[in-house]
Amino acid sequence: MDLQLTGKRALVTGSNSGIGVAAARRLAEEGARVIVHGRNQQRAEAVAADICASGHDAIAITGDLSTQQGCDALWQAVEAAMGGLDILINNAGGSDDATRTWETSHWPDWIEEFEMNAGSAMRMTEHALPGMIAQKWGRIINVSSAQATMPFPHSSPGYNAVKAGIINTTTSLARTYGKHGITINCISPGPVDSAVFREFALDLPPLRGKTFEEAEPFLANKWGVSAGRLGQPDDLAGAFTFLASPKARFINGVTLRVDGGMCGFINV
């Protein structure tokens, strides 16, 4: 399927590892001009160089999106490089400590998680929208989490709550800006294999000392991932790229689960 993404200008925040890399690479393969973003310059440049080495178009811009200044600086660099955006993927986020619980997390942790996840997405959206409205075309894709809709008892409550906020914001933005030819959607990933994920999962007491391959069936079973396996970053790439495409112009305000069937409740 020709996704008609040739020449589209795309920023994927947090794209120097994991899901972000897969999304950035796939968009570039479909002809988009991609900005790889991360906090670590060396890693971001390595990802961009790798994409360019395969004959596609990517540059790297670094910055910390958990602050207003960081977001403003990134936007200035985006404008200088490409004069605006057609596609914004708000993938950056996470938690500085994914093992926080209700007992160990405090209000400052919530603020920090809100800044990292919703703050970064909202500031970049605010920057990108005027240009998208002017050109009557745009795609914004946010990233939530299965934890937003089915929070585990022992996972960071602030992170879960802010990811739920992102689902709400997605529908709200869609209803506001749909008339300008802009779609705002969200992807809600289940557990996906990445360096950060391995660090977290392989430190869980029953899995210490195990390899990822040994741990995977246990985790898929424990978390009810129907597919029987965890996700790989490439499992997400197609969904991001499809939603970014003109072919998805009538899909707006949705949160698409990409979770191997982990969310066990009906999807409305």
Binding site: I167, T171, R175, F242, L256
Partner: peptide, 23 residues
């Protein structure tokens, strides 16, 4: 094959007409 890990979902294609959040 790009959607191997998408199952059990209900994808709205309605131009944003559904006014409630999508979980």
């Amino acid at each position: 094959g790009q959607a191997d890990w998408i199952t059990g979902v209900n994808l709205r294609i309605d131009g944003g007409m559904s006014y409630f959040i999508n979980t």
